[in-house]
Write a protein that binds this DNA or RNA. Structure first.
Length: 268
DNA sequence: ATGGTAGGTACCCTA
């Protein structure tokens, strides 16, 4: 089963790119973030026609929005409200598989970006980001066990490792790579002993990015990227991980998102 | 130290 995550930055604008992505990558499950579209305007029929009749979507006007599109039927699906808001940042689905007795649960997350100033006292957006990560960590810890088969994907808006950014030193005070948020993400990772599926395939000492700012003239030449998009799995899934792919070429598509699709193959 | 671009919406917000 190929599971793909992509911060699409407007599903209505970029629906043709989803069809390209399906042709090129043939994913079983597509998790999207920043759809920026209320559910009634989501291109449901286009997705069904493309071969993904099962979907869980939770969007709103202008901001945020998450979606899970699937070839395989869900046994259940949920919308999760976080930090006392209904801002469309977390959904999950369950699927039956042949490898596990329990259904495999897939979480699609869009962690708040956190604004510019990395101080929760003066910046409400950064405070919200930290609270969001803490709440999700506590919630995973309270509701699951480490040996449950779970997948968590999405735009976490945090690049935790030194080589998840183009310059560790220059980004230490830049939101997405500050020690305080990296520590919080570490807490979330510890909640269920989550395994970083991409770093399972890519050595820690290798640079690895999934996002390049729109503000760079030539993203490829300057290559000032960050790894903000993640795929985590719980330990029981690790023996079944087969491959990964980061579709860097998508950053050169016509009207690209600033994020590129990230995927893993799991034998389920 | 600064400003650079993109998307959605409504003349400004978020990333």
């Amino acid at each position: 089963m190929r599971i793909l995550t992509w911060n699409i930055n407007s599903v209505r604008l970029r629906m043709p790119r989803v069809l390209d992505l399906i042709k090129e990558c043939d994913p079983d499950i597509i998790c999207l973030q920043e759809t920026k579209t209320p559910d009634e305007h989501f291109p449901v029929q286009d997705i069904i026609d493309a071969g993904y009749p099962h979907m869980q979507i939770n969007g709103m006007k202008s901001y945020n929005g998450v979606a899970i599109l699937s070839r395989h039927e869900f046994t259940s699906s949920e919308i999760h409200h976080r930090v006392g808001r209904e801002d469309c940042r977390h959904i999950s689905v369950q699927l039956k598989t042949s490898k596990f007795k329990k259904p495999v649960e897939i979480h699609c997350l869009y962690v708040p970006a956190g604004g510019d100033e990395p101080d929760p006292k003066t910046n409400d957006k950064f405070d919200h980001k930290l609270k969001f990560v803490d709440e999700v960590a506590d919630w995973f810890r309270d509701n699951y066990a480490n040996d449950d088969p779970l997948v968590a994907v999405g735009d976490f808006n945090i690049a935790p490792q030194e080589h998840d950014v183009w310059s560790h030193k220059q980004l230490l005070k830049v939101v997405s790579h500050t020690p305080v948020e990296i520590e919080r993400l570490g807490g979330m990772q510890e909640s269920l002993d989550w395994q970083d599926a991409i770093r399972h395939f890519v050595p820690d000492e290798d640079k690895c990015y999934t996002w390049w700012s729109y503000r760079n003239k030539d993203w490829k030449k300057s290559n000032r990227g960050r790894r903000l998009d993640h795929i985590w799995v719980t330990k029981p899934l690790m023996p079944h991980l087969k491959a990964h792919n980061i579709l860097t070429t998508a950053r050169d598509w016509e009207k690209p998102s600033d994020h590129v699709p990230v995927m893993v193959d799991v034998d389920l």
